[in-house]
């Protein structure tokens, strides 16, 4: 079953998680399946395919590219059977997403040095929830996790993180609202060191990527981290909303300019979104997409895998849930 592959590393089975993704995939993949369920490869197939890809937020460029590649392959290999064309498309899509995994680096946790993860993104993409999931993910490997409430701007963002900290039993380092995020991070770095914490996850305020001064603040936070641990933050995670349109790519590019993004997480894949933005991001950026967030519970986090992403979102391979 496809979902077992997608969530192979998950420690506990979670029925709701599977239902979450089930909702997402139902509409598109059935349409793609239906699209190739015809007697011949004709012009209409290409037109409809382009429409479906665009509807899944793959964007104009990527959709054109995929359709053109499919056409070329069909002509070159003299394909007749729509089922073969379907397989070509699937392979092309997986290949595209693999651009977002080939640069993935092995992460090494050193004993006695906190592994610092800085989490950034625009407003409302689900950063805080993603942090809780990420924390739970590391806890499942037996690592001790600490959270830092670096979003001192949004009302009650600190409380929100504290509630999550409580639920997953992770200490939260926080100052008051309006405090300097740099100071929070400074304290958190110190606390992480003193308490021998394995993983420190730092929340940051949501910011639109076109606000120069806010983007600069991220650079500053980074510098504060480096004062304690020269290689920190070992992970800079950008969270992108799976429902976002083509602006998601611009976000990723702008964030990458200000802070060196090491990983991307596609959040809210539990909605009816098709997560097509992953394709543009993979094609244009090459920054590793590492995680997908699929629900509202802390266990709703999976590692990103191109083949299963494509299969479960677009082709419904292994259907039978």
């Amino acid at each position: 079953m496809v979902l077992n592959r997608l969530f192979r590393r998950r420690s506990a089975p979670d029925v709701q998680l599977e239902q979450g993704l089930e909702k997402t995939r139902r509409s598109v993949f059935s349409e793609i399946t239906r699209l190739f369920d015809r007697s011949a490869i004709d012009e209409e197939l290409y037109v409809d395919l382009e429409m479906l890809l665009i509807q899944a937020d793959l964007g104009w460029d990527v959709s054109q590219q995929l359709v053109a590649e499919l056409r070329a392959r069909v002509t070159r290999d003299r394909l007749r059977d729509p089922a073969d064309a379907r397989e070509v498309l699937r392979t092309e899509m997986v290949k595209l997403l693999e651009l977002a995994t080939r640069n993935r680096k092995v992460k090494i946790l050193q004993r006695g040095v906190p592994f610092v993860i800085m989490v950034a993104g625009v407003n409302g993409v689900g950063k805080t929830t993603s942090i809780a999931k990420l924390a739970a993910y590391h806890q499942r490997f037996g690592r001790s996790v600490m959270l830092a409430a670096g979003d001192t701007f949004r009302a009650a963002a600190i409380d929100q993180l504290a509630v999550w900290g409580d639920r997953i039993n992770a200490p939260v380092i926080a100052h008051r609202q309006g405090a300097d995020p740099g100071a929070v991070v400074f304290d958190a770095m110190q606390a992480a060191h003193n308490r021998n914490v394995d993983v420190l996850i730092v929340d940051t305020a949501g910011r639109l990527h076109n606000k120069a001064n806010l983007m600069f603040e991220l650079t500053k936070i980074r510098k504060v981290m480096q004062r304690h641990v020269s290689e920190a933050p070992q992970e800079v995670l950008l969270v992108i909303d799976a429902t976002s349109g083509q602006n998601g790519l611009i976000q990723a590019k702008e964030f990458a300019k200000s802070v060196e993004i090491t990983d991307i997480m596609i959040a809210k894949l539990d909605s009816t979104s098709k997560g097509g933005i992953a394709f543009s991001v993979a094609k244009e950026l090459g920054t590793p997409i590492s995680y997908v967030g699929t629900g509202e519970k802390v266990t709703d986090l999976a590692e990103f895998r191109p083949d299963t992403y494509v299969d479960s979102l677009f082709f419904g391979v292994g259907e039978g849930l």
């Binding site: 976002s244 349109g245 602006n247 998601g248 979104s273 098709k274 097509g276």
Partner: peptide, 12 residues
């Protein structure tokens, strides 16, 4: 509604 929403905005 978020101005950055993609194609799904209509469905929503």
């Amino acid at each position: 509604a978020d101005a950055m929403t993609g194609q799904e905005a209509v469905g929503v």
